[in-house]
Amino acid sequence: MNEQIDLKKVITVVRRNVWWLVGIIGFMVLGMFLYLQYIATPVFQKDTQILVNQSENSVQSNLNSQTIQADLQLVNTYSAIISSPRILNKVQQELGKQYDIQELAEMIQVKNATDSQVIDISVEHPDPQIAARIANATAQTFTEEIPKIMKIDNVTTLSEAQVFGNELPVKPQKALMLVLAAFIGILVAFAFVFIRLLLNRTFTSQAELEELLGLTVLGEVSDFQNMDLFQTVQPRSKHFKSVTERRR
């Protein structure tokens, strides 16, 4: 019985505040749309690829599991070297010291696919031209410095970052952010309904009144919405008064 009454309460509160719920969800979506359209800064991504060739000894030898594992470890080592301060310091000088090493480390992402000798250097920046410039400068600096560090000249640039003029930003993802805003709006709307339900102290039925207060309801008094009854009774009382005066 309590579950049915609670469900009825929830449905009643939702029906009474349906426009509030729609307004809350619409406000969240509209706010996110305005933020994405006029406040959020679009971020573009540019990529360049570096190929790590196998050394001559490994090419002449049999490609066993140990050789492949050594090549993969070499790729992981190169990925760590790209993000090292030695490379980033050279990139900083190449860019005219417009960014410090910490900013470059946050913009540059180095990754490589599993069982692959290709290293991807991705750079995210609000300006696609600057992103491409940083990516190319990082790849060029690494190919120049790696022979001095590892004494091995087995790194070549596979592809350079280019700017085509029709790039689309990778951040923020507008569709995902709008869906997230709608979901948050639904949560806020249901929280609003739940709070209104907790603050509602009125009784909605006779059974609820008897159950919560432990009283027996003897009768109900209806609420008169039409006052025509009182307007029709008033002239009759005047007529009755005039008749009694005549009799006197």
Rank of each mutant, 00 (worst) to 15 (best):
S242C: 08
Q45K: 06
L229Q: 12
T114S: 10
R15W: 08
F194A: 06
D153N: 13
R248I: 08
T216R: 15
G214F: 13
G23T: 12
F190G: 04
Q69T: 14
T143P: 01
A137L: 02
D120Q: 10
M107Y: 01
E220P: 10
L88W: 08
V123I: 08
E144K: 08
Q117T: 09
Q45D: 10
S205N: 03
T48G: 15
V59R: 13
L88I: 15
F27D: 01
K8V: 08
P172Q: 04
V118Q: 06
S122F: 02
A191W: 10
A207Y: 11
Q234S: 13
P172C: 11
L36A: 11
E144R: 13
I50H: 01
F194Q: 05
I24F: 06
P169C: 09
V10W: 10
F224Q: 10
L74K: 10
Q117S: 11
K174A: 14
V22M: 09
E220Q: 15
Q69C: 05
Q109G: 11
F142I: 04
V170L: 10
D153R: 03
L197T: 15
D6Q: 14
A181V: 00
R248H: 08
R236H: 06
F240H: 14
A182F: 08
K238H: 09
I68N: 03
K148C: 05
V14G: 05
L88P: 13
N57C: 05
N17F: 00
P172K: 09
A161Y: 06
V10G: 07
I184E: 00
